[in-house]
Design a protein around this nucleic acid. Structure first.
Lengths: 112, 112
DNA sequence: CCAATATATGAACAACTGTTCATATATTGA
DNA sequence: TCAATATATGAACAGTTGTTCATATATTGG
C-alpha cells in the first residue's frame, strides 16, 4: 500500500510522438479564446458572426482560432448559404472539457 | 433528435474567469516536456535527476518545468536528503491525460 | 454580372514560452 | 566547516502565439 498508483492496471508509456500529439491536443484547449469557443459550442452549433458577437471579439480573431480548432479536428463547419455554422466534432471534446472543469472545481474546494 | 447534445443534462456555461483558469490548466498539459514528465510520473514518483536522464534533457530545463507543474498543483515534491522526488498530485490528472490519449487514438482510428 | 454579406487569410507586431548557461541554495558526510 | 551532490533560479535569447488590419474569397439576391 506504499504506492499510490493502481498497480492492477497495465499501462504502457506511449512513444514520444504520441506524447507530442497529446501535448498538441491540450495546447489547443490551452487558450482562453478557444476554450470559450468550445464552451459556447457545447450549447449547440453557432456561426462565426454570433461567436464573435458572443465573445465580444473581432471576426478575424475568431476565424483564426476556428481554423486552429478545425485543423485539430475539434470543430466541424457546416455551410448554409453565406453563413458557416460550427459545431463540436465529437463528445470526446466535452469529456475532456468536463474533466478539466472538474479538476478546477476540485482544486477550488480543497484550498484550506 | 436533431441536436447532437444530450439535452437532458443541465449545464451552465462557466463564467469567463473559470474558463480562463481552465485554459491555464490545459496550457500546462500543452507542452511536450511537461506531458512527458506527467507520463513518466504515472509509473510512480521520480527524482529530478532521473527525470532529466529519462527524458534526455538538461536538469535545469526539467526543474523549470517542474516548477510550472508544481505551481499548477499537478505535481508534489517530497524531499529525502538531497534528493527531491516528484509525484502526481491526484488521480484527476491521470484521468485528463487518459481522456486526451483516448481522443488521439480515436482520431487515429477514424482516418479513412 | 454587381453589390452586399459572411467568412477566411496573410502580414506585421507585441507578448509570451522554453531552453541554455551561469550561479545560488540546500543537504549530507567527513 | 568544507567539498560534493541535488535541485532551484535568474537572465538572455530564439522561437512561437494571438490579435489587428487590410484584403481576398465565396455566396446570394437583384
Amino acid at each position: 500500500m506504499e504506492n499510490h498508483t493502481s498497480d492492477l492496471i497495465k499501462r504502457t508509456t506511449p512513444d514520444i510522438e504520441t506524447l507530442y500529439d497529446l501535448s498538441e491536443l491540450f495546447k489547443v484547449f490551452g487558450d482562453t479564446t478557444r476554450i470559450r469557443i468550445i464552451a459556447a459550442l457545447l450549447d449547440g452549433e453557432m456561426c462565426v458572426y454570433h461567436l464573435a458577437e458572443y465573445l465580444e471579439m473581432g471576426q478575424s480573431a475568431i476565424s483564426h482560432q476556428l481554423r486552429i480548432l478545425r485543423s485539430a479536428g475539434l470543430v466541424r463547419p457546416r455551410r448554409e448559404g453565406k453563413t458557416i455554422f460550427y459545431s463540436l466534432d465529437d463528445e470526446h471534446i466535452e469529456m475532456i472539457y468536463n474533466m478539466g472543469l472538474a479538476h478546477i472545481c476540485h482544486k477550488k474546494g480543497e484550498v484550506k
